[in-house]
Amino acid sequence: MKRSLAGIFAALLMTSNALAADLAPVEPVPEMPPEVTVTETTGWYLRGDVGYGFTDLRGARYFQGSNDNEVDFTSADLRDSFTVGGGVGYQVNNYLRTDLTLDYLTKADFHGSTTGECGSPLEPCTSSDRSSLSAWNLMANAYVDLGTYGIFTPYAGAGIGGSYVKWNNLRNVACQDDGGGCDDEVTHKGKGNWRFSYALMAGTSIDVSCNVKADLGYRFLHVNGGSMFGYAENGGPGRDKGFNVHEVRAGARYLFGGCQEPVAYEPAPAIPLQQPVYK
């Protein structure tokens, strides 16, 4: 009897060991780190701007008398003006963007004076000269965004292009310095021409929404010199030496597709647990 029980117990023990050997171990599934997708803001945008420009005329010259003697205006001042414009651009990445802009410098009044002789007999006299100019500025620009701090993104930029400057007719009246009288008013036909220009910009963009950014900045615009007015009544033609515009600007940019949210976290696909294999 004891031998029978011992034999049964040994048989059960052998069977249990065999089943345990046939049971394959379950490998632990490693936890995958979350997948982070880094996206950049890119795409086309439209922009619009308005500004106030403090203009600085670099001087003006004209031919005096028989047109063989070019002299400077005694005084030449260009008054301030407004600008309005727009453009289309492309955001290359989070740090670089470019655009093509066209803006209009509204009428800036010119006040000047010259000295010479007038009247009969000839006496020393001073003329009062009045005109105005306006300009279209076509510029290709590039900007470097200097990082984003909250909703603010400061930037610096530069542009190059051309300006079509249109001078209105210049009217001048020469009066004797001793108060003896004035000559009749003389009108010189204004000139218009394209000129080389360049710009330097700095400012900050402000996030308004996912695809709208406000823009506050400063622009320095330099326009080369060119023709100013023609010949009339033994005087002229004249030319200006160019001018600078120190401009305070405000505007907005609309970025197409700017509301596409980047994928910040994407969980790894679920991997089914490995089932035990019995042999």
Results as ranks from 00 to 15, higher is better:
Cys125Leu: 05
Gly159Asp: 12
Asn93Glu: 12
Ser163Ile: 04
Glu35Leu: 11
Glu261Cys: 03
Pro154Asp: 13
Glu266Lys: 14
Val88Gln: 07
Ala264Ile: 05
Lys107Cys: 00
Asp240Leu: 05
Ser4Ile: 13
Val263Ala: 10
Val29Lys: 14
Val212Trp: 14
Val223Arg: 05
Asn169Glu: 04
Ala250Gln: 09
Gly87Asp: 05
Gly238Ile: 05
Arg79Pro: 00
Pro34Ser: 07
Leu23Gly: 01
Asn193Asp: 15
Tyr104Phe: 15
Thr83Ser: 12
Val186Phe: 01
Gly203Lys: 11
Glu70Pro: 03
Ile8Ala: 09
Pro30Met: 11
Met1Phe: 08
Cys118His: 01
Val38Trp: 01
Ser205Trp: 04
Ala142Pro: 06
Thr74Ala: 13
Pro28Asp: 15
Leu19Cys: 01
Arg195Phe: 00
Leu138Arg: 04
Gly147Ala: 07
Met14Arg: 06
Glu123Gly: 05
Leu146Asn: 10
Arg249Phe: 07
Pro25Arg: 09
Glu185Leu: 01
Ala264Arg: 11
Phe243Ser: 07
Ile8Thr: 10
Gly238Asp: 06
Gly162Val: 11
Gly192Val: 01
Glu261Thr: 14
Gly190Phe: 04
Gly190Met: 09
Glu123Tyr: 11
Tyr52Asn: 00
Val36His: 13
Cys125Pro: 08
Gly162Lys: 05
Pro25Glu: 10
Asn17Phe: 03
Arg79Ile: 02
Cys118Glu: 04
Val92Asn: 07
Gly85Phe: 10
Gln260Ser: 09
Cys125Ala: 14
Met32Pro: 00
Met139His: 10
Gly159Ser: 11
Gln260Tyr: 00
Gly112Glu: 10
Tyr278Phe: 10
Asn94Trp: 12
Glu233Leu: 11
Ala214Phe: 15
Thr41Ile: 04
Ala135Asn: 04
Thr55Gly: 06
Gly258Asn: 12
Cys210Leu: 10
Ala18His: 10
Asp80Thr: 07
Pro25Met: 01
Phe73Arg: 00
